[in-house]
């Protein structure tokens, strides 16, 4: 398997089909290793085009309550660096779906940037989004990823001024992730109204694929985003399928399957 090209291939295929990727977020190890692995399988089988795996961190300051609690559950169940990598290897045994880590910089630094990039790539990770690492501080990390042919993913926020988008795009090698509303992660009722304008503005600065997320909870959200972006990220509403069914793995997996299937109808 040629790891790093999985991301590019997925976007290329979607573009050829005039469609968008359905990107699913799960916290690795939520609520425990075995259930998490089954959850990954469930969302992939139900139609996940790119899997975003949150690496649980003790202090997830960019995440809202839903993801915080997911990280807490994972850590309390004993998730560690080693087990996160084991989870990726286990998913790789049955799927070639691109996997992108969604993580915090200290978890990378603790192992050394070059070593971390190598370990992640060897486990089967294709790209990494580091939530608290802006391009200004990312030179070493970008180099470490380039050496392993691991794709970097960066966030563009509603507060990002137009002149800064180019700088962010210059650091990214995988894709850009536009957070559709200011704030931490979480479900919302309405999507940002100026989404179309903002996406157009970002596209002026870069040819990189662009995914949009933060707050997607209905098929209409998926439809609206897919109309303008290359991918739709669904996070909290997926994680809630786990949070709402703790202790009942069958119900969790059924809820995940239903959620992905339902939301995916927005792509049709």
């Amino acid at each position: 398997m040629s790891g790093p090209n999985r991301i590019q291939q997925a976007f290329d295929q979607a573009r050829d089909a005039d469609s968008a990727l359905f990107v699913t977020y799960l916290c690795a190890g939520d609520p425990d290793f075995d259930t998490s692995l089954a959850a990954c399988r469930a969302v992939i089988e139900a139609g996940t085009d790119l899997l975003e795996l949150g690496v649980p961190f003790s202090d997830p300051l960019a995440d809202g309550l839903t993801n915080q609690l997911a990280a807490q559950r994972a850590l309390e169940s004993g998730m560690s660096h080693e087990k996160v990598m084991k989870l990726v290897r286990a998913v790789r045994e049955f799927s070639d779906v691109p996997i992108v880590f969604y993580t915090y910089y200290n978890l990378i630094l603790a192992h050394g940037e070059a070593d971390y990039a190598k370990i992640a790539r060897e486990a089967g990770v294709d790209g990494i989004l580091t939530l608290d690492l802006p391009p200004e501080e990312a030179d070493n990390w970008d180099r470490a990823c380039a050496a392993e042919n691991l794709k970097t993913v960066y966030i563009v926020a509603p507060t990002t001024p137009p002149e800064r988008i180019g700088k962010i795009a210059a650091s990214a090698t995988g894709f850009l992730y536009y957070v559709s509303r200011t704030g931490v992660t979480g479900e919302r009722d309405s999507l940002s109204v100026d989404l179309q304008d903002k996406v157009a503005l970002i596209r002026e600065s870069t040819k990189l694929p662009l995914v949009v997320g933060f707050g997607v909870s209905r098929p209409e959200h998926v439809r609206d985003i897919a109309a303008v972006a290359d991918g739709v990220v669904v996070g909290s509403s997926i994680v809630n399928c786990i949070a709402n069914n703790l202790g009942d793995t069958d119900a969790t997996l059924a809820a995940l399957h239903d959620k992905v299937t339902t939301l995916r109808t927005g792509l049709a």
């Binding site: 608290d132 960066y154 990002t160 001024p161 200011t182």
Partner: peptide, 12 residues
């Protein structure tokens, strides 16, 4: 030191 924060805060 430095600036290790989510992108949303960089401009602020």
């Amino acid at each position: 030191g430095g600036m290790y924060v989510p992108e949303t805060l960089m401009t602020a």
